[in-house]
């Protein structure tokens, strides 16, 4: 690592992840000093576990969705005014901290605003076929809608510069923010790149992941919710 990771903040949005959050945060803290966990109004012990594992916890009093939680995390990190890069990281343990570190490094080294983790640029383990198909379809839609030629739109692992993070003002507080990220990159003319990452599909992450039905909701949100 050529850059000090103590200038990097890892943002982990979490909702009812008490079962795994502590392990995920400890794993991240092997490499990163600063981890902020946004507890999105969990009904379980997520906050307590996250704090015990050494994360700063920002708790939403109400469940507002992953997009909303992410934005809260980014705003918290920006408020500290001491980070060169902010990494977003899923709470279910599907990402590897090593990938996150390399992406932060890559972002700072290249002076980019956004680095997007991509499963299809790298290798994904045990991805169910239906999930792969759905993700490909979602990616195609987003590419057409945003004009940004990415290979994987729904990957929670991203590295952002302060400028990139400040641009992430989501209209969609749910899962549609993943596509919105690309629209915001395009609208704000942010510099970006993809970076190959590995995703671990555990039974837990699959159970917590997106159901096929929710893609209907996401598509609806993206086509209808245009106003702030």
């Amino acid at each position: 690592m050529t850059h000090a990771l103590d200038r990097v903040c890892v943002v982990i949005p979490a909702y009812n992840e008490a079962a795994v959050i502590a392990d995920v945060i400890r794993d991240v803290r092997r490499l990163f000093d600063h981890v902020v966990c946004i507890d999105d109004g969990s009904l379980d012990e997520t906050s307590v576990k996250a704090r015990e594992a050494g994360a700063v916890v920002v708790r939403h009093p109400l469940n507002r969705g992953q997009g909303a939680a992410l934005q809260t995390g980014l705003e918290w990190a920006l408020q500290q005014q001491s980070f060169e890069a902010i990494v977003t990281f899923d709470a279910d343990g599907q990402h590897r901290p090593e990938d996150a570190a390399r992406m932060a490094d890559f972002l700072i080294e290249r002076g980019l605003d956004v680095v997007l983790g991509s499963r299809f640029a790298g290798a994904a383990y045990d991805m169910p076929r239906l999930k792969r198909l759905l993700l490909k379809a979602a990616t195609l839609y987003t590419r057409v809608a945003s004009g940004i030629p990415v290979t994987d739109t729904h990957n929670g692992l991203r590295a952002l510069s302060p400028r990139g993070a400040a641009a992430m003002k989501f209209n969609h507080r749910g899962m549609a923010h993943a596509s919105e990220v690309l629209q915001l990159i395009s609208a704000n003319q942010l510099s970006w790149a993809e970076y190959p990452v590995e995703v671990r599909y555990t039974e837990h992450s699959l159970a917590k992941g997106q159901s096929l039905w929710n893609s209907v909701n996401i598509l609806w949100d993206l086509t209808w919710k245009k106003h702030p």
Partner: peptide
């Protein structure tokens, strides 16, 4: 409600 929740969470933090 989302904005309010965020403001509250950040103030609490």
């Amino acid at each position: 409600v989302t904005s309010l929740t965020r403001a509250l969470a950040l103030a609490q933090a």
